[in-house]
Write a protein that binds this DNA or RNA. Structure first.
Lengths: 136, 136
DNA sequence: GGAATACTACGAAATTCTTCGTAATTTAAT
DNA sequence: ATTAAATTACGAAGAATTTCGTAGTATTCC
């Protein structure tokens, strides 16, 4: 057992995880560049310092959110848990803290505020069918 | 100007909001009692101090999350925003930070991990029907 | 080799969140 | 009226998060 705690990623940590989930194991430099190339529609176009990203990623490795490969000069950090697992954790957390455990209400909120594409709606219907039918 | 809109409630603040959403405008004493009467199935049954709850609620009033009625000796705190509005905010935030804006994926996660009751599934179908413009 | 470059390690400041202790004030009890 | 109880105000400590600066170490380039 190494890093199996229920570490909940913070906002900054999630941004980093998103980069790594998208691009795979990455160096600090790469992640920092991705974070900074985001457009800032609002005035605050502040760039994140390299050592800031470094530090957070080091902390994440300690927490068990990332795994570090030190075999090369520039360490490679990979996600310790797959994206869907962390998403599940966050959804469950939100479910408990803000929706009293009612997945239905959460779903209604998620769908209610966005005009889902017909295709998405179809996908959800399929999911519902499968859940109901019990076969799969 | 004093009450800022964008205020996102923290974990502790959300617990307080849940009490107030459920019971309506409440005193600090009442909220604190509700928070402490929760059973802690696991070891850490530590009680929250009265002044802790008081302080957080005062801060929440400053942030604009709660509104305070000082007409009586024991101040009454009410929610500044309806539950659904805050839920929407939190869902949107999660959508952006962890699901890349895809409501579909969030919904799949929310539904995937829970055996929804047939009734809930039916409700969601209704919602989908309405989203598609009533016809189908 | 020596200078410039790139990266990690370390520590600490700044912020926010959470927690209380203490003092002051008001209400209730005796 | 005095004492006791309850409540608010204030401030501050502790913890977690986010931010860097500086120093040290390795790599690359004349």
């Amino acid at each position: 057992m190494g890093a199996k705690r229920k570490a909940r990623p913070t906002a900054a940590e999630l941004k980093i995880l998103n980069v790594i989930w998208t691009h795979g194991p990455s160096t600090v430099r790469f992640v920092n560049d991705r974070l900074n190339e985001e457009k800032t529609p609002k005035g605050g176009g502040r760039t994140i310092g390299y050592t800031t990203t470094l530090k957070i990623m080091q902390v994440m490795a300690e927490k068990g959110l990332l795994e570090r490969d030190e075999s090369r000069r520039s360490h490679l950090y990979g996600a310790a848990s797959p994206q869907h697992q962390v998403q599940r954790l966050l959804v469950d957390r939100l479910l408990q803290t803000a929706f009293g455990g009612s997945a239905l209400k959460l779903v209604m909120q998620a769908l209610g505020g966005h005009k889902a594409k017909p295709e998405e709606i179809a996908r959800i219907r399929e999911l519902l069918d499968r859940m109901e039918g019990g076969r799969r």
